[in-house]
Amino acid sequence: MISTSFSSMHPKVPGRYAYRPRLRFNLFFMSKIVFFFTVICIPLNGYAEPLVVIVSKKLPVKDLPKGMIQLLFLGETVEATGKRLFPLNLSPEAPERQSFDEKMLGISPKDMPRFWIDQRIRGKNKPPKTIPSMKLLLRLVAKLPGAIGYVPESAVTEAVQIVAIDGKRPTDRDYALK
């Protein structure tokens, strides 16, 4: 529709210049689409800043295998240094949660409700507790020595510590939550 009206302002000239105005317009239009997806959609679907897994400073855990974190957030019981870990999730709408589910658990946000419904009908455990805000999650992780959660690296406070994943820190190139 727009393209048609734009063409009507630039009558077609026979020869090699015939379609140049339409091409210029399309490039401009495409750049707007690219901008839209870059600025609007990427933060919704993939969280740009690396996430980090956090535990209380009182818990002497510095590193956890990725497989263990997966089991934990998929409802299995996991212990570290003799203490049972208790996973805390952010709300399903939070971009951090969506990014964590995709990168750590390999499950897309649209498939996650189905996954947990199926798990419960199979008699498995319930999903991790959802905490309504990141600020509250940080405070609860700090307070409870067995609690484990995830936040963007920039949100980490003094009261919690970052746990390496398979020995990798967030600055490492192949860090699991990058």
Binding site: L136, L144, A159
Partner: peptide
């Protein structure tokens, strides 16, 4: 749990729920 961090009533309610659910 230690009492180093003061919790609001909302946080305390969630904490209590966690205790009941998770052990």
């Amino acid at each position: 749990p230690s009492n180093e961090i003061e919790l609001s009533s909302e946080e305390a309610a969630i904490l209590r729920e966690l205790e009941r659910e998770g052990g």
